[in-house]
Design a protein around this nucleic acid. Structure first.
Ligand code: FES
Ligand code: FES
Lengths: 156, 156
DNA sequence: CACAAACAGGACTAAAACAGTACCGTATCT
DNA sequence: AGATACGGTACTGTTTTAGTCCTGTTTGTG
């Protein structure tokens, strides 16, 4: 059903939580406030940090914060960070794998059209659009608030 | 990685093959000419017929043909026929399941935005766009040829 | 300097989904 | 009657996913 990983699903919940604060948050903290089990949250955050979407600080008072201005993060990036490149089938450019029917396949990689379409639509949905506030707030105000929090977190 | 079932992948190969002929084709025939194993082809066709995308005729000289003008079939329909409603996560309208975090979830079903975006983009890619001919032929010519073949198959 | 808080990386297991196959039944044509 | 072809469904091995745990490293604090 064209499903996304459960991890990715949780990730959005956690990221939205992180979007709300203005400082580094520890994995335990985020687990607590999001309701997602700690080991899982931990796994997600580690992965997101690895890709640069988040940045991390170790030691006492450490935790996670956004690696760059969160208003600019798209859902495509979140999904790709956790699941690797978006590829609806094996026979799509960039997927790494190669379809077993290539030799006789009557439509060399035409799934690409589908893939590109999906990719583009995911680029257009931003992470901040997932916040419930997004429904009521003026988009510009939302962006400004988020940007301010990010700045605060950075200097801390 | 937002993958589509292998069955769905094969289905497109088979459907493209079917798009080429102007008569009913048996499962065995299609398996032969597409290179996909017969039992698999059979499974796919059965399912597609159940949803009405294809129509079937039993008995000698029976087989499968399109249930309606193929030029109007979108990839969204093909995917939904084989995998059920498109739902990237559990917490999306129509998915049937219900997310376990609904109670405390900070963003009730905002995945819907993503889902709708994907759905729309899949609606815009047509099955006939998957044919290699689609790259070289004038789209209108392609549609006409396909429509003629369909008509021929219908009257037969 | 010792200790505690936090992240980093990876290994492991149980459960679920998928892929592929097979079997038996029903309809249709000759 | 018999051959062809679809219809439904059940079964099984394999692969993926989800979730957990453990061990190591970094960093602030008393
Ligand atoms: S089905 Fe993979 S290359 Fe065509
Ligand atoms: S994560 Fe499912 S309702 Fe929010």
């Amino acid at each position: 059903m064209l499903k996304v990983n459960k991890l990715t699903d949780y990730a959005v919940v956690v990221l939205c939580d992180l979007l709300r604060g203005d400082r580094l948050r520890s994995a335990a903290d985020l687990a607590q406030s999001s309701g997602v089990p700690l080991p899982t949250v931990s796994k997600i955050l580690k992965q997101l940090a690895r890709t640069g979407l988040l940045q991390s600080a170790r030691g006492v008072n450490g935790g996670y914060g956004f690696g760059r201005p969160p208003a600019g993060i798209s859902m495509a990036e979140v999904i790709e960070a956790l699941e690797g490149p978006i590829a609806v089938t094996g026979c799509v450019e960039d997927s790494g794998e190669m379809c077993e029917f290539v030799h006789q396949c009557p439509m060399n990689g035409h799934w690409n059209a589908v893939n590109v379409a999906i990719r583009r639509s995911l680029d257009e949905v931003r992470l901040v659009d997932m916040l419930p506030e997004a429904r009521f707030m003026d988009p510009e105000d939302l962006n400004r608030v988020i940007a301010e929090r990010h700045a605060a977190a950075m200097q801390a």
